[in-house]
Design a binder for these strands. Structure first.
Lengths: 350, 350
DNA sequence: TTGTATGCGTTATCAG
DNA sequence: CTGATAACGCATACAA
């Protein structure tokens, strides 16, 4: 049996054929030697592996994908990468995917329904093996996902889901988080509590408002519609809505924000209006960034388990992709939020 | 010519062959009709397009990749996705890539050299068309990249680069940013200014320390080695280093931090020690998160152009990939930082 | 145990 | 203008 001598040119990458040629073997033999040790002469195998090493052989995943009709990549659709919640979630996704031999392809919807649809088309044509998605704020119907799902594409929702698709969902306990947060404000003596919500179409929005309402009700505080404001994700819109809220006859004593960006917009406007925190106005809200906790001494946060959500969602998706569960008993995983109360609320007004 | 009738099964996706079969044409004809209008009967073309539409045909990019030996995907290696600077940069990258028909595959080195090497291997075997990379804090030599680059893979550095590889680099003006920041502290009357740096092996670290030193020198302030501390990226390490800094015989009057996380660690420890900001200690630093600016009234930021860096780097990479410039005249693009000074520094100590 | 042939989806080449 | 064929890199059913 000939020896493997030809040292490969640096520019191109060796294929199974090159090894076969160098060793005067057939490609099938080489292939067998490279894969399982199944039906192969140990000596042949040794030689092949040695030669593969020398030629710096790397299997071509694209050829594999074509053959096996799978890409070993999963697609992730998020509203905005540049959002601490989603970047943390992607971190979790990437960790799991990496461990299980998958790559992560990122798509942003920028909170736009149209972009989301295009993203889904791209994902489909890219032949990803599965999709993780958190819906855009504009999305009201999910035919684009339904179609994909019907065709057999594994899909797992995280954070923002749609009930119209029967699949795994990984979410934070938004109801409980909002309930505890609101109750904390109530227990601090606040009665007029505003709720700055995100898009009314989102699942997270509905759940959080439910929790907010439940806490009010439990403590016998009437629900005031004027204290609940929805905003989309542009800074301008947020500021307008907050201005509107603060221009009403009855001013709230506290504001419950549902995102870091909303909290920041609040801080900015409250400062502009010389409204002191927390003396004049208590501030708290859903946050993913422990920054809020660190930097503003009077901000109570409902921390969302972004990393864990990404991890769990990725695990469920890859189980689906790898058909670990023949009968997909779809589940909804609800992860707890964490209420971080800082003692400074009481001592801050020195 | 037969009509296209068979409505495709939902599960699988139509191929060029299916269209050919349905229309009783050859795959080559179908292919031609689908691509350029070159050498094709307009009528045939119409029929093919119609049928493609009906069968919901989507070209298989994997087959294309195999044929053309390119993937229309670029790889991005960053230390940590869950870092506002990098997530913003990725945002910029994704925007450009998206517009030019490329997909973005994400890899994290987690500031580990070993992980970075593995990432590069994955990228290579994934056959991405190009690589954008910001080096890990642990990386001291770049043979892994050199090899890839020598083999012809287009590589563009952003933020953290190595001089050992001759290619495009897109960076912030770290020297100038550090100079202006330091000078601002000096002009506020501070003389003992500490500099909390990142890994000493990084280009950004060297550049920033140069700027810091230059500002001191310009104002006749002696350089004190004890005021410059390096830290890696773990929170524990940061806090240890800061504790160390604050336990020296001579306390600094100001701290210049080179990242948001360092700034946060500082805030936390200063608070724990009851050191007031800015009365007892001025704080400023490189920041990507306008959060710092919003939440802490006394934090002066040197804002880095993360988004723009991502965009510029992606543009340069894709030009390289598409060989727009036959002779790669590699350039180093330096983007300005922005010093955001907040007036509250003077009025805060009420 | 090894080799031959085939196919994954597409396009390019060449022949009609 | 259209059709047949080969090729991209790999794995496998089947033949030897």
């Amino acid at each position: 049996m000939k020896n493997c001598t030809k040292t490969r040119l640096a520019l191109e990458t060796a294929t199974i054929k090159d090894i076969a040629k160098a060793l005067n073997l057939s490609t099938s033999t080489v292939s067998r030697a490279l894969r399982g040790s199944y039906e192969i002469n140990p000596e042949t195998k040794r030689i092949v592996l040695e030669c593969a090493e020398k030629l710096n052989y790397r299997p071509n995943p694209i050829a594999l994908s074509l053959k096996e009709n799978r890409s070993r990549a999963i697609g992730v659709v998020v509203p905005e990468i540049d959002n601490p919640f989603f970047s943390q979630a992607i971190n979790g996704i990437e960790a799991i995917a990496y461990n299980r031999g998958y790559h992560v392809v990122i798509f942003q919807s920028h909170e736009s329904y149209d972009r989301e649809v295009v993203n889904i088309q791209h994902l489909a044509s890219r032949r990803v093996d599965g999709v993780l998605i958190s819906l855009s704020g504009q999305t009201t119907h999910v035919e684009h996902l339904k179609e994909l799902h019907t065709k057999g594409m594994p899909i797992v929702f995280f954070d923002r889901f749609s009930d119209e698709i029967n699949t795994h969902k990984v979410v934070a306990d938004n109801y409980q988080g909002a309930f505890e947060g609101t109750e904390h404000l109530i227990n601090s003596g606040k009665k007029h509590i505003a709720h700055l919500a995100a898009s009314p179409t989102l699942s997270i929005t509905r759940e959080r408002i439910s929790g907010y309402k439940a806490a009010l009700e439990k403590h016998g505080i009437p629900y005031n519609e004027d204290f609940v404001k929805y905003c989309n994700f542009s800074i301008e819109d947020m500021e307008n809505v907050i201005d509107e809220l603060l221009s009403q006859p009855i001013l709230p004593e506290a504001i419950f924000t549902v995102s870091d960006r909303l909290a920041m917009a609040c801080l900015k406007i409250l400062k502009k209006r010389n409204i002191r925190i927390p003396e004049d106005m208590a501030l708290m809200g859903f946050s993913n960034l422990k920054v809020a906790e660190l930097l503003s001494p009077s901000f109570t946060s409902v921390i969302q388990p972004a990393l864990e959500m990404g991890q769990r969602a990725a695990e469920l998706l890859l189980d689906l992709v790898e058909k670990k569960s023949k009968s997909p008993a779809y589940q909804t995983v609800t992860l707890p939020t964490e209420l971080v109360i800082r003692d400074s609320t009481k001592t801050a007004s020195k």
